[in-house]
């Protein structure tokens, strides 16, 4: 079960991005422990959840990929990652990925997880710190930029 709690988010991310954008993510096959701080690559979105355990998913994209996601899904030509529609689209992708993964976890392990709404942000020199929770990251590459997911559960992977 334990490794499933992490891997399921990678699988959902790859599947949803492929399904919605017809975009392949290369890599994202292994998980690596992150230090306490994560430097944002451009646009980051976090969803937290609570049930029998508590945790969160961070999806972090390089600017080029965030713009591609928004432009493809909305059929527009945005060129600024601070645009509200670009941020909202990345946030919605996280909502769909987390919804898919959490539904599978609830069905398989009766975790009764409920999602808080996604948050999304971009800015200068952004660092994300999730105190007291160890987390694992997985990186992938696309034709439009890198993507990272970071998964954390309270109580770690024990």
């Amino acid at each position: 079960m334990d490794i499933d709690l992490y891997q399921i988010f990678g699988t959902s991310t790859k599947n949803i991005i492929k399904e919605m954008l017809d975009l392949d993510i290369k890599g994202m096959d292994s998980l690596k422990e992150e230090p306490g701080e994560i430097h944002s690559m451009g646009v980051s979105s976090i969803i937290t959840f609570a049930g029998t355990r508590k945790g969160r998913l961070l999806i972090d994209m390089e600017p080029g990929l965030a713009l591609y996601v928004a432009n493809t899904l909305l059929g527009e030509e945005y060129d600024n990652i601070k645009n509200q529609m670009v941020l909202s689209t990345v946030s919605e992708i996280n909502n769909i990925v987390s919804g898919d993964a959490v539904t599978q976890l609830n069905n398989s392990y009766s975790m009764r997880l409920r999602l808080a709404p996604p948050i999304v942000f971009t800015g200068q020199d952004v660092i994300i710190s999730i105190p007291k929770i160890s987390s694992l990251s997985s990186w992938g590459d696309t034709d439009y930029g890198r993507i990272r997911i970071n998964i954390a559960w309270e109580g770690g992977n024990s």
């Binding site: 941020l87 808080a116 200068q124 020199d125 952004v126 994300i128």
Partner: peptide, 20 residues
Amino acid sequence: VDVTPPSIIFGRNVFFIIST
């Protein structure tokens, strides 16, 4: 209601959306 884990974000000139 239940509370989820906190996230701390550092940075300058940050644009957020925290709710729909």
